[in-house]
Amino acid sequence: MKYAILVNEGPFNHQASDSAYQFAKSALQKGHEVLRVFFYYDGVLNGTKHSAPQADDRNIVKRWSELGKDYHLDLAVCVAAGLRRGITEEVVAPGFRITGLGQLVEAGIDADRTIVFGD
């Protein structure tokens, strides 16, 4: 199965980002394809390299970066939503890239299933 994943919420504030990560990781481990993880709304905050959670907590941003590296996963941050929230090329974490909303629509067209994580 080819999946596209949309993350609508910021890290730590909302479970959506954790659930999206767990889903993506499981799907990839089971041999499915994840065409793209697209970060929109406050979801773009998943891509900031300045996130520094306490040592006994999960590091959501780093976790995405590592998953991206391990599976050559496309971690796409919306440029328009990102600009509003200060997420620009200068601050994106390794493995993330800034791109347009068109990439979400394209992923929706190419994927067998598009899964939305958010309220």
Binding site: A80, G100, L101, G102, V105
Partner: peptide, 16 residues
């Protein structure tokens, strides 16, 4: 912000 950003998404999707 959801309503505004859904609208932005809809406008982009119209090009596809």
């Amino acid at each position: 912000v959801y309503a505004l950003e859904v609208l932005e998404m809809v406008l982009i999707s119209a090009m596809f």
